[in-house]
Amino acid sequence: MAHKPKIALYWCSSCGGCEESVVDLAEDILAVAEAAEIVFWPVALDAKYDDVARLDDGAITATLINGAIRLDEHVSMARLLRKKSRLLFAHGSCAHLGGVVGLGNFFTNEEILNRVYCDVPTVNNPDRVLPRPETRQGTTVLKLTGLHDMVRSLHQVVDVDYTIPGCPPPPALVKEAVMMVLEDRLPPKGSIVADTRALCYTCPRKETRPEMLEVPSFKRVYEIEWDPEQCFLNQGVVCMGPVTRGGCMAQCIQANMPCRGCFGPVDNVRDQGAKSASLLASLMESTDEEQLKKIVETIPDPGGLFYRYSLASSIMKGRVRRRP
């Protein structure tokens, strides 16, 4: 076992949930550790930037990067790991699509910084001090890594070989991705380690979906006591199942929650949010414009809802950036 394959894991703009999905492999992680050498995993192992930089190009068999790209640091780490790795995996919704983090693209950096550092009720910052690229303290200059004005997915920054979708990905998919590498059964480049079809195909409630469905208004999950057996859409609850790639084993549905779309769209759909609009529009029961507006009002923040995970990789990618 002289040449154990080397594996690395890294996080960019991430909540840590994807790391959890690795930890959730439980005992299986030991098998991975047995079969492969984990050379870099900042969350769990003590290793430094230089340890990676010293490696030969392509020395790492596979790297899993989770989190969206928002800082200069993310870009340089992604590029470094790309260079050192034979295979690069986008791990989780943020790396795949920009994820929830990507919703930041509906706002400007200024709006975000003001909100986070000044206006949040739990923050006390009367002088409105914001993080600055450079801070001088005597002779010391402290530099912060650059904050981009857009959140990007990993794909938008480096060449990605495979994608493990999900927020977070089910541990089974992470395991499958790792085993793919270890057992040398790699699918065509660009593959997403999940189903090719949308979630409905494997949804346990699909039998209850009628052929003709129109709803007078949409309901939020707290507004009704919903039937645990019935198709959510059939109950007027917004479920993103039809516009979302399957492969999650319908875990949310099993837990009696509608799909929120974290696996992103299927191959033929370019923009999950726009397709969601098409989907929900088709269900609205009215022919009258005013009535339709009322139905639309029952969907609070449609942009945020439809693009919850995919804004950064959508057609618009975010709010229109005008020249100041």
């Binding site: 979630l199 195909y201 039809p242 033929n268 088709s282």
Partner: peptide, 28 residues
């Protein structure tokens, strides 16, 4: 229909003005 991609969500069935979309119960 690309039957390899169709998830059987049935959204299209109610929309067709000519009832030209049929659902294959075996293939779903």
């Amino acid at each position: 229909v690309d039957t390899e991609l169709c998830s059987g969500c049935k959204i299209c069935l109610g929309l067709c003005p000519y009832k030209a979309i049929v659902f294959d119960d075996t293939q779903q």
